Simulated scan of single mutants.
Amino acid sequence: MNWAFLQGLLSGVNKYSTAFGRVWLSIVFLFRVMVFVVAAEKVWGDEQKDFKCNTAQPGCHNVCYDHFFPVSHVRLWALQLIFVTCPSMLVVMHVAYRDDRERKNKLRYGENCQRLYMNTGKKRGGLWWTYVLTLVFKIAVDATFVYLVYHIYEGYDFPLLIKCEQKPCPNKVDCFISRPTEKKIFTLFMVVSSLVCILLSIIEILYLIGKRLRECISKVHHSRHVTTDQMSSGSTLMDQSTLKLGREKTPVTPAPSYRVAIS
């Protein structure tokens, strides 16, 4: 698995993320990817080799191991990290599409033409929906894999002793897992980090929706204020013009003249 490519991808989308998105990226790198690469692969490297059963019956060891560990934890977590990080590529691709449209618009109408986007990386319009949908997909992926780990392995515990009675085992045999406590700690760590990422994604969605609603409400208030000002100024101008016309149309009554009769 090319972790350098994954790191470059997530670092590229980091500049288009919110503060919560950057925290999410930090947790994915430090507490999931780094722990997975440095420690988890070594902890589960000997899981099948050191899985021992107290019988020499051919095939019993393999059947019991496949029954209790149908999917390797390491491969399941690798698949989870791929699915949870690849949606970030959609955001980068959408921004690249906007940049390409802006470039073609400048080539067609010149450098001084009206821009299609004031900021191609600003989460408005389609990019806002793309970003929110990627967050929803990340939540669904993490929640699904957390449930799969619990369902497949019947919890997050690693018992010291496993009772196996699968065929071709002659009877109920005892099987032992290598380093069960260490594996339990790393499993709980990965599950908790996944839950934290789910919580951060939910908070980020609520933040984006709240911010968008606040902007829409402020625009509505601003438009109403402008309309009220225009109507008020129009009424004032009409009153002034009416008053002026009234003054012009009012006839001037001449002063009465009185004649004094001289007797």
Rank of each mutant, 00 (worst) to 15 (best):
V74M: 09
V74E: 11
V74R: 09
R75E: 12
R75P: 00
R75Y: 12
L76R: 10
W77A: 04
L81R: 02
L81C: 04
I82C: 09
I82W: 08
F83L: 15
F83H: 08
F83M: 15
V84N: 04
T85H: 02
T85Q: 04
C86V: 07
P87S: 02
P87Y: 06
P87W: 04
S88Y: 14
S88T: 00
S88K: 00
M89D: 01
L90G: 02
L90T: 07
L90H: 02
L90S: 03
L90N: 07
V91G: 08
V91T: 14
V92K: 00
M93K: 00
M93A: 14
H94Y: 04
H94W: 00
A96P: 01
A96Y: 06
R98P: 05
R98D: 02
R98V: 12
D99K: 08
D100G: 06
D100K: 13
D100N: 09
R101D: 10
E102H: 05
E102F: 04
R103G: 02
R103P: 00
R103C: 06
R103D: 12
K104Q: 11
K104H: 07
K104R: 13
K104P: 00
N105L: 03
N105W: 01
N105G: 01
K106L: 12
K106F: 01
L107M: 14
Y109V: 07
Y109R: 05
Y109W: 11
G110E: 14
N112A: 08
C113Q: 06
C113P: 01
C113I: 03
R115C: 09
R115G: 02
R115H: 10
L116K: 07
Y117N: 01
Y117R: 00
Y117V: 05
Y117M: 00
M118E: 13
M118W: 11
M118V: 03
T120D: 11
T120C: 13
G121P: 03
G121C: 06
K122A: 15
K123R: 09
K123H: 11
K123M: 11
R124I: 10
R124E: 15
R124H: 04
R124V: 14
G125I: 05
G125R: 06
G125T: 08
G126T: 13
L127R: 14
L127H: 05
W128Y: 13
W128F: 15
T130H: 03
T130Y: 03
T130M: 15
Y131N: 10
Y131T: 15
Y131W: 08
V132T: 09
V132Q: 13
L133N: 08
L133Y: 10
L133A: 11
L133E: 03
L135I: 00
L135C: 02
L135V: 01
L135P: 00
L135Q: 10
L135K: 13
V136K: 07
V136S: 12
V136G: 10
V136D: 08
F137N: 04
F137V: 10
K138P: 01
K138Q: 13
K138F: 03
